[in-house]
Amino acid sequence: MSFTFLNELPSPAEIKQNYPLSDKLKALKKERDAAISAVITGADSRFLVIIGPCSADNEDSVCDYVSRLTSIQEDVADKLILIPRVYTNKPRTTGEGYKGIASQPDPEKAPDMIEGLIAMRKMHIRAIEESGLTCADEMLYPENWGYVEDLLSYVAIGARSVEDQQHRLTVSGFDVASGMKNPTSGDFSVMLNSVYAAQHPHHFVYRGYEVETTGNPLTHVVLRGAVSKHGNTTQNYHYEDLIRLCEMYQEMDLVNPAAVVDVNHSNSGKKFKEQIRIVKEVMHNRQVSSDIEHMVKGVMIESYIEEGNQKIGDHIYGKSITDPCLGWEDSRDLIYTIADMCR
């Protein structure tokens, strides 16, 4: 037999019971969820800025980063809603290397799934407690949703997961804003079909149960660029790309047509400093086209305390051990620039 069963994992209910969210924070999340939902539906004209480390690899530095956003959120509250990225699952293209705190709470030690689930939940709760901001995470493993479903205000489905039926069906049961990234091929039709699937009700098997979902009307697209068959990165944040997406949205039976632009990954060619220029171009395109303005609801930025990245084991506080990120000063200035460019 090729599987070796190591440990039976505690259920989401058991983890939640041991690491509960307080009534005060439940109320905060409800308020934040409603505000973010209103942006996606068009009831609120504010702009979403989903910002934070490529991978949430260290609780202290991640929570330090998230708390730095609190005073900025107060300054820009009339224009922006900041959603910290606390990404606890880090997919690697080949499956090798660090897989995120949910699987490997200490990047220098062997995976420990039980401790990882606990570390994931503890970090999210601490981030909310210390910042007053509920966060975003990427759902790499659908079966892990129950461990954090009461904590997150935004969920992203990655480029390598968006074509997977289990991810699409699971999102159809969410009640928070959920962004479906375009696949690495860049195919808009695949991305929009994923949104269609998630917006509609389904009947399927989930965590050993037969379940039904009602559909998630807050599901939308995330543009992250693409990779050609020759291995070259191609961008999809330009004016022509956004207009094409507007037109494709109009041709489909989808509610709340919305897009978030991921300004790193293939859109920047992983040249993290390019995120500043790309954000400004996206904001300019919103200014010159009412169609783009109404559709593009936010940007996604990879940012940490120290710019760039480092190797595992270098131990530079607040510096990414995965993809390179913008540093704090550039990130802070960029948030204020976004606010200034909002109407």
Rank of each mutant, 00 (worst) to 15 (best):
R126L: 15
E129L: 11
E129A: 09
E130T: 15
A136T: 04
A136Q: 03
A136P: 04
D137E: 09
D137W: 11
E138H: 04
E138F: 10
M139V: 07
M139F: 13
L140Q: 06
L140D: 00
E143G: 10
W145M: 06
W145D: 00
Y147H: 05
V148Y: 07
V148R: 11
V148A: 07
D150R: 08
D150P: 13
L151M: 10
L152T: 00
V155Y: 10
V155T: 10
G158W: 13
G158L: 14
S161F: 03
V162W: 00
E163M: 12
E163W: 00
Q166H: 12
Q166V: 14
Q166I: 15
Q166Y: 13
Q166E: 10
H167E: 01
R168W: 01
R168I: 01
L169H: 10
S172Q: 09
S172Y: 10
G173T: 10
G173Y: 14
F174H: 04
V176Q: 02
A177T: 11
S178N: 02
G179S: 09
M180L: 15
M180Y: 02
K181D: 05
K181H: 09
N182D: 08
T184E: 14
S185A: 13
V190N: 00
M191P: 02
M191S: 02
L192N: 03
N193C: 09
S194G: 15
Y196E: 14
Y196A: 11
A197Y: 05
A198E: 02
Q199N: 03
H200E: 03
H203K: 14
F204A: 05
V205K: 11
R207V: 04
V211S: 07
E212T: 14
